[in-house]
Amino acid sequence: MILIHRAAELLRAPGAMVDRIEADASFAEEAPRLLALLALGALTFGAVVGGYRGGLQVPFAAVKLPLLFLVPMMLVLPALRGLWSLCEVDVSYQRLVTAGLVGGARTALLAAAAGPVLWLLFGVMDYHLAVLSFVGVLGLCGLPGLLVVARAVPAGGRSRWVALGGSLVLLGLASMQTGWLLRPFLVRPQSTDVVLLRPVEEDVFSAVETTAWSALGVYDSESDFGRPVYRGTR
């Protein structure tokens, strides 16, 4: 029951929740609840995403989605405090972590709520469109979560925009590479090759480069993944 109350609080007034946790010094009690809500929302959303193929991919994607939310946050939060301090805004590490957890849990719950819509759309979409929809839903639901963190930082600081831009770049890069390492989330329905994780080969930036060249119609020899890839100038 308490989780339902907390879910309502973080969806209705996330900023006030961050302030309350700081004022009550109740981080130790609230952090596990926020983590549980984050995991619950992300598991649900992951199960929906894995449902595009069905079978074993449902639990695989469900287990990996919470990590997609948590790992980038863990990588970036230590740097954020230093960055904001450098830009004349002093914020405590605990407040940043609280805001990150509230924002992450809010994003996960919104993503879970978008699950049924995505599931319906998956029924009529081809693979590429389904991938785009998955990324689009994550982006849309991530925005309110990011706003929680941005608003939790105290006002002031003449270089605030530098810190805000830098935070977004760091979080974006960490999320991209984490997503790449945890792939696949979406698998083609006819695929027989279902794995929890693919081998660590190349990185997300190579993949983006390959895709960009492919989109321009520039292909070369076969890559390790068995797909066309650009290799140098032609």
Partner: peptide
């Protein structure tokens, strides 16, 4: 101090890319 906070981030990219 900002650099110290960036260590986990750098480590992640050094190891996985």
């Amino acid at each position: 101090i900002f650099a110290l906070g960036l260590v986990p981030f750098q480590l992640f990219f050094s190891v996985t890319t």
